[in-house]
Design a protein around this nucleic acid. Structure first.
Lengths: 229, 229
DNA sequence: CGCTCCTACTTTGTACACAACTTCGGAGGT
DNA sequence: ACCTCCGAAGTTGTGTACAAAGTAGGAGCG
């Protein structure tokens, strides 16, 4: 659990989220064990944790495969995220234990990448943005962070901020700043409203880019394993 | 994963929820392995799953112990449950794919135990009630059931319907019936409202019985391992 | 030609042995 | 008397071997 297993988990986790492991592809224990140069034992533990995260599905005596999410499921997750993160923002504002300085620092670091043309800038923004939201989750209560992890990671799969236009980025960062203001004011209603609109905007953007990304490839009409569910 | 591990997981899960394993007590792999007559390997897998459920906490090189939940944390979980189950009820009503016949059957079976004096009746009602709520969760979307499991199981620890008075039971069952009506009507607002009041009532009952159970024992002021968190 | 059954292979599930880490106790020094 | 350091006991982490289950391919039969 502590060292080898953690490393395998973290690496597989990243591979799945960045698209190195395609949804539907199988994960064989031995193959992964060889790749990382470890035995199957820590690999198994890592796979169980990924399964608990909802990122892969374990089938008895058959192995694991990366979960495929239909568009409807992602829509549902956006709704849940809106609900739970709105709640987290409200609670964080009311309890007043949120680390405002840290949030402002994260805002500044994200804004510093506004005119950054380096392709890796999107990854960095994604990381900072995740940390920004997580900070609010933690301030919202004890049970919220774990719950939100399951809801957020999935729609984030294969999606980073490189799909955002400069204008969308600017608006998104502006909402972050307003969120910090609402939290600083201790106004739960305000914080929840900003968070909800922030996430609705993200969903709208996702819908737009999804349509653009879908048509060219043309691999959607098949729905290989989804139809039997 | 399939046979031995599942059995160990299910048994430990039940032991924790029924109070056989007290919060704060440690779980040693070897002891559990001997008790069940299996090796440590499936025991480890079961412990990881319980950890993912939020029922136990794993400490590297030290072992696992049953999670202690403070009263404030349980309050928070009731809030989240209210939020998510209300959402589930709304969605279930709007989508109209809920199995109304099954819900009515579960209602009838619960009501049949209203005048049952058998002490095991409370366990049966708890089981039926859980199934009633789960049916609605499933009708509310794909991601909701797993999410709600984590939120609901914890406050249910060591608590069954034997603490309910006959009047509380009757009111609770009446709310179930009204919920079915709201779902049948496809009225999302109605369904959500009924669900939320149903759960708020449950929380009020929990608060009352908690105060009664707390004072006699007098073991609360110590807070053994909680103070360091 | 198609269907069924059987065998061989692939992959996961469990047991067991050893290594690594943490913790607690006592001996020694200041 | 107290603090520090060292060592032994106990518990988890990892590696490896074997058992069990599932899957796919081909041979035999209808």
């Amino acid at each position: 659990m502590t060292q080898t297993s953690d490393r395998v988990y973290a690496d597989l986790h990243r591979e799945i989220l960045t698209g190195g492991r395609v949804p539907g592809s199988r994960l064989r224990e031995e193959e992964i064990a060889e790749t990382f140069g470890v035995s199957r034992t820590p690999v198994r533990e890592a796979l169980r944790r990924l399964s608990a995260d909802g990122l892969i599905e374990l089938i008895p005596h058959r192995g694991a495969e990366v979960v495929r999410w239909a568009a409807d499921d992602i829509e549902e997750l956006f709704d849940l995220r809106c609900l739970l993160e709105g709640h987290a923002a409200r609670r964080a504002a009311q309890r007043g234990e949120v680390d405002l300085e840290r949030l402002r620092e994260l805002c500044a670091r994200m804004e510093a990448h506004l005119d950054d043309t380096d392709p890796r800038a999107a990854d960095e923004i994604t990381r900072l943005n995740m940390e920004f939201h997580r900070t609010i989750h933690r301030a919202g209560g004890r049970a919220l962070p774990d719950l939100l992890t399951r809801v957020i990671e999935v729609p984030v799969v294969r999606r980073t901020f490189d799909e955002y236009s400069a204008e969308e980025l600017r608006r998104s960062f502006g909402q972050h700043r307003e969120l910090v203001n609402a939290l600083a004011a201790g106004d739960g209603d305000w914080a929840e409203a900003v968070m909800r609109s922030h996430l609705r905007a993200a969903r709208a953007s996702w819908r737009t880019h999804r349509r653009q990304a879908e048509l060219p490839t043309g691999q959607e009409p098949r729905t290989p394993e989804t139809d039997k569910d």
